[in-house]
Every structure is written in structure tokens, then in C-alpha cells.
Design a protein around this nucleic acid. Structure first.
Length: 292
DNA sequence: CACTTGACCTGTCCGC
DNA sequence: TGCGGACAGGTCAAGT
């Protein structure tokens, strides 16, 4: 379930690994994961060089010398793994890797570069997608027009966060945090972790939060996102970076997937799992109470 | 318009 | 052991 820190980790890896490489060959399960017509692939992808890899919210944008871009959303089980030669385990121990020989049965798209290296787009559940479009059109797609501000940009103040969240004042804070048009890049893991950090119950209506709550939540959210990027993101089941390696943030998580374990702030209280905003939600019932 | 729910998929886990 | 059903959750479409 790649969220902002996972997608940013992949971006950094791809930026390092793909820059300057020239696409020589493309194989895909089109149209499911890669809907472009073959003619466009032949004209604007094959023969093009990778010039830059950007991220906006949970979307990756691989810029090409053809003035086209490959736009990728990993959704829940997508992976972008680069291989140059055989199986790479990166710098860590082999057990840090989740993927073996590629392609495998979840490979949906394979890009082969002119030097023989390859980029694999794997996606077990086929929710993710990759599409080729003119770079100039990327900001005009519906998602980009509607998506909220990046929480790690310097202009993302607590007041801006408050004002964005108040656009959903009659809904629960967790639903508002997950809404990509409110704030970009937050998903289930970092919503739960930041709400625990700020001692706010996920069902609390946004309109019932005080300025002090918004300040604390702002600090908690930025803190968990930064820490997770530092740890290479969160691997629960599928997520891996561009080298195929897992992220280690979940070792530092306080509540996510920790139901039944004790709250770090309350050795006498166990973390429980609820359903909020249609998602599995983890809280400490002692720190996080609904406010009215 | 604001807000909630279901659909999209497949692999895994749990109870019978 | 096998099997049906619940569950995992990012986003969009459809529903209230």
C-alpha cells in the first residue's frame, strides 16, 4: 500500500537508476495496466531517454526526452523494480528482498533499456496503472487538478493544513486525512500513526478539533512521513523499493498492525482495531477518545 | 454539494 | 485437507 513515503523512496531509487537510460523495448498486458495504443508506445516511449523522475502525491512521473512522461500509480500492490543483470539484493541481506527472479506472475509491464537493463512494473491486484502522455498534459489530468498540497513542502503550515481539513468539517478526521483532494499522499498507515501521535480519535469530527489539535497533528504527520522516508517506507505485504528491497518503518510504528500489543504511552492499555472511514483503524483507547 | 458505500482485483487467512 | 467467505486499502463512480 504505497503512500507518500513509499512512492518517494521509489522515486529516489529510480532517479538514481534510470537517468539517461534509453528505452529499447516494451512488453505489457495492455490495456489493463498500460492502456496506451501501440503506435504511441512506438513513437514516444521506444527510443526515448529518461530525463527526470518526479512525484506528486502517490503518483510517479517518469519524464522522457520525447516530451512525453510515463505516469505511474502503484495503488495497493504495485512495484517498480529495476534489474541490471540477475537478481539484485541491493546493499542489505537477501531477506530484505521480497522479489526474486523477474518477470514473475505479477509482472504487468517490462521496459527493456538499450544496455539490457530492465524495469518491471509488478502488480498482484491489477489496481495500479502506468500510462504514457505528453508531459504538458500531466498537470491537466483530473487527479492532478484536484489533489491537495504536499505535506512535506515548506509552505505546508499548520494553518494551511487546518484550512484544508476544514473543507471536510462535518466528516471524521481520518476520512479527511485520507482524502487526496484535502492533503496529498496520506494513506491508512500514516493516518493512524499521526492520529496516535496527536492523541486524536479518528472519528472526531474535523469541526470539533481545536487549533492546538491541528498544531499537534501537523507536527505528528510531518514527523511520521519524514521518519518513514528515512526508513525506506513501510512494507506490510507487497511494498518494495526500486531495488526490490523492503522498507523498515513498521518496526517503528506505534499502532499500525499492532492490535493486542500495549500502547507505548500506556503499558496497561492494549491497542485495538476498529473500522473507521471504511478502513481498518488502529488506536490506543486511552490516548485517543472521541471529543464532542 | 457533502458525504458514504461499492467496485475494481488477487492472495491469504480463518472457521467449519 | 478443502472450501467459502472475510479481509487487505487507493481511487473513482454511483448512491443517499
Amino acid at each position: 500500500m504505497p503512500e507518500l513515503p513509499e512512492v518517494e523512496t521509489v522515486r529516489r531509487g529510480l532517479q538514481e537508476l534510470l537517468l539517461g537510460r534509453t528505452v529499447a523495448q516494451v512488453a505489457s498486458d495492455a490495456p489493463k495496466s498500460f492502456p496506451n495504443a501501440q503506435a504511441d508506445v512506438d513513437h514516444f516511449l521506444v527510443g526515448a531517454q529518461v530525463t527526470e523522475v518526479h512525484r506528486r502525491a502517490k503518483v510517479l512521473i517518469i519524464e522522457l526526452s520525447s516530451q512525453y512522461a510515463l505516469v505511474v500509480h502503484l495503488k495497493m500492490t504495485g512495484q517498480l523494480v529495476f534489474r541490471n543483470g540477475g537478481v539484485r539484493f541491493g546493499a542489505g541481506h537477501p531477506s530484505d528482498s521480497l522479489v526474486g527472479e523477474l518477470p514473475d506472475r505479477s509482472t504487468r509491464v517490462t521496459l527493456t533499456f538499450s544496455d539490457g537493463s530492465r524495469l518491471f512494473f509488478n502488480d498482484q491486484r491489477k489496481f495500479g496503472w502506468m500510462r504514457l502522455m505528453p508531459s504538458s498534459e500531466v498537470p491537466n489530468i483530473d487527479f492532478m487538478r484536484k489533489v491537495g498540497p504536499e505535506p512535506l513542502e515548506t509552505d505546508f503550515t499548520w494553518q494551511l493544513m487546518r484550512d484544508r481539513l476544514l473543507r471536510r468539517k462535518n466528516t471524521g478526521i481520518k476520512a479527511a486525512l485520507l482524502d487526496q483532494t484535502v492533503i496529498a499522499g496520506v494513506g491508512n498507515i500514516y493516518a493512524d500513526e499521526s492520529l496516535w501521535g496527536a492523541k486524536i480519535h479518528p472519528s472526531t469530527l474535523v469541526r470539533d478539533l481545536t487549533d492546538q489539535d491541528f498544531r499537534t497533528l501537523h507536527k505528528a504527520l510531518i514527523g511520521v512521513l519524514r521518519l518513514s522516508i528515512e526508513k525506506g517506507g513501510s512494507t506490510d505485504k507487497n511494498y518494495v523499493d526500486a531495488d526490490g528491497k523492503k522498507g523498515s518503518y513498521l518496526r517503528f510504528a506505534n499502532v499500525f498492525r499492532r492490535e493486542g500489543q500495549t500502547c507505548p504511552r500506556h503499558p496497561d492499555t492494549k491497542i485495538i482495531k476498529l473500522r473507521v472511514a471504511g478502513r481498518g483503524t488502529h488506536i490506543c483507547p486511552k490516548c485517543q477518545k472521541v471529543k464532542k
